[in-house]
Amino acid sequence: MTEPLPSGPPSAHGRPRSSPVVFTADFASTTQWVAGRSWAYPGGGPVNPRDDKLDYLVADAAYSRSGVFRARRRQDGRWNTGLLTTEGSEEGFTVRPGDVLEARVRLPREIGAWPAIWTWRDGDQEIDVFEYHPDNPDLLEFTNHVRGTNRYHHDDAVGPGAWIDLRTVFGARSVEWWLNGTRVFADGRGVGRGWHAYLIVNLSVCAGRYHPPPEPRTTEMSYEVSKLVVRRPTTAGAATAEEDATPS
């Protein structure tokens, strides 16, 4: 059994501080999320071959609105894929410096699956809470594209079909990634004090340039996000958390 996720940024002694929840994902909500469209894709989608993706974004609720993100093979060789973003939604929620995102996900099993939780705004501002590829079964990818840092993290708790608890602290001076209650990477770079970005949750499908595409017999794939919340420390608490952060 995994330990409960800490509720806020850690103190210098490793004790989490409590922070109020400012966003609780309701994937069925049409005011929180827009389905099947993202400006992280050229023209807002539906395809993005330059990023080595076979995706064809669809707004169909069956592909994303239950928290199970699905992909199904099309006759033209692309895959109908599920994506939700807060960009363009009525609420328009953005993550800010000091925010803490907590998520519980079930990783996919199928080769070619490419699940991710990430941020995006105005062609950039990307922080990858996680990316995963089942051809590297024990590896999670954590990346700060804003400041150019990343970590490939191998862990026995990671594998096709595994449930994992993720936690990302979007610090102005250091972004931290936690897995199953343990901090595994602090980049020492952060996002800066003026950063803010929308959330994206999706399941992409690899085209084969960097990771193998789906096997011919595979016609469907999925991964699940059973929890996603964002906590926002008070101004004083966020400043203290920045002082406490030490890269590892």
Rank of each mutant, 00 (worst) to 15 (best):
M1S: 15
E3Q: 12
S7I: 12
S7N: 10
S11P: 05
A12Y: 07
H13P: 06
G14R: 08
R15P: 10
R15T: 13
R15G: 09
P20A: 07
V21S: 04
T30I: 10
T30G: 12
V34E: 01
G36H: 05
R37L: 02
R37Y: 07
Y41T: 04
G44K: 03
G45Q: 03
K53H: 11
D55I: 06
Y56N: 15
V58A: 02
A59H: 02
A59G: 15
S64L: 00
G67T: 00
R70D: 05
R78Y: 15
N80F: 08
N80H: 14
T81S: 02
G88D: 10
E91M: 08
F93W: 03
R96A: 12
D99S: 02
V100C: 11
L101W: 04
A103S: 11
V105T: 02
W114M: 03
I117H: 02
I117Q: 01
W118G: 00
W118S: 00
T119K: 08
D122F: 12
G123A: 04
D124K: 13
Q125F: 07
Q125N: 13
Q125H: 14
D128M: 07
F130D: 09
E131R: 12
E131L: 10
Y132C: 05
Y132L: 13
P137F: 12
L139A: 08
L139V: 13
L140E: 11
T143F: 15
N144S: 06
N144K: 07
N144A: 02
V146C: 02
R147W: 09
Y152M: 09
H153M: 09
H154N: 06
H154Q: 11
A157N: 13
P160G: 03
I164Y: 08
L166I: 03
L166G: 01
L166W: 00
T168K: 03
T168P: 08
F170K: 07
A172E: 00
R173G: 03
S174R: 03
E176M: 14
E176I: 12
W177N: 04
W178K: 05
W178E: 13
T182I: 11
F185W: 13
A186S: 12
D187N: 08
G190H: 02
L199W: 05
L199V: 07
I200C: 06
N202S: 03
S204L: 12
S204V: 09
V205D: 01
V205A: 06
A207W: 06
A207V: 09
P213Y: 06
P213N: 09
P214F: 08
P216N: 05
P216T: 11
T219Q: 15
T219D: 12
T219R: 14
E220M: 10
S222I: 02
Y223P: 09
E224C: 04
V225H: 00
L228Y: 00
V230E: 02
R231W: 10
T235F: 10
E242W: 05
E243A: 14
